[in-house]
Design a binder for these strands. Structure first.
Lengths: 122, 122
DNA sequence: TCGATACTTTTAGGATTATTGAAATATGGA
DNA sequence: TCCATATTTCAATAATCCTAAAAGTATCGA
């Protein structure tokens, strides 16, 4: 992920409605959610949700596909992962020791491996 | 970190000059950099850098202290860590399996522990 | 102590960009 | 084809950004 993409992603996430939508999409998983449903859940107008979804899409944080009359949006997990990596490089690159707290949170990503390793250590 | 803080942080990082400044500060470490030096390095006016530093400070991503005639800015590592954690929760919370790539990057934060565990596994 | 100096911040303005609700367009089914 | 549903485009409003000039603040030397 280059700086340009990171800027777009940060911009996309710096708006309350968009952040809420993204979290919705992440929770929904690969199945995604129809634009109209997103509008209802986020309690914003259809035009507004359309605008914000486009913004998320532009940043790679959401992808769209048509299903009958609806357009289904899903989270762009790759872009999300890339963004986290981008931040981690900024944070850990210069000073690994400062970022230790993050590593704890990272454990949630590979629970099985971690548990296996911990068992072995025991 | 609550949503309000995350929004402020994303907003702070969504501007090219500010992102460049933050990366500078991270690399500089706890010693920090004087405002004037930042302006030179970033190739922007003093007033402009002042504006952007205030924005970073507001988001907790930078802290200021005086040293003789200069004002030294340092990266706000806690806020940065918090932001990464916030993103990880959004990303991993619903679907841990999708975020595996991030875990790899996380390894940079606890290299020693990881090496130890890998040795044991061997 | 006091003024001169170095450094940074504040302010005002105009230009660019973001947000929003209303109108318009496109799609699928009868 | 026609209607109902779903989404997008458009134009007005609001927010943000940048430059330059003026003001503020603390330090250093006499």
């Amino acid at each position: 992920m280059d700086e340009r993409q990171a800027l777009a992603a940060f911009g996309a996430l710096s708006q309350e409605t968009r952040l809420r939508i993204l979290r919705m999409l992440v929770v929904a998983g690969p199945d995604g959610i129809a634009a109209g449903t997103i509008a209802e859940k986020a309690e914003v107008s259809a035009s507004n949700v359309s605008f914000h979804l486009k913004e998320l899409e532009r940043a790679g944080l959401a992808t769209a596909r048509r299903d009958a009359r609806s357009i289904i949006y899903s989270a762009g997990y790759d872009a999300l992962s890339d963004l986290i990596r981008f931040l981690m490089e900024d944070c850990c690159g210069g000073h690994p020791e400062i970022c230790a707290p993050v590593a704890t949170a990272a454990a949630c990503c590979t629970p099985s491996r971690d548990i296996v390793l911990q068992e072995i250590v025991k």
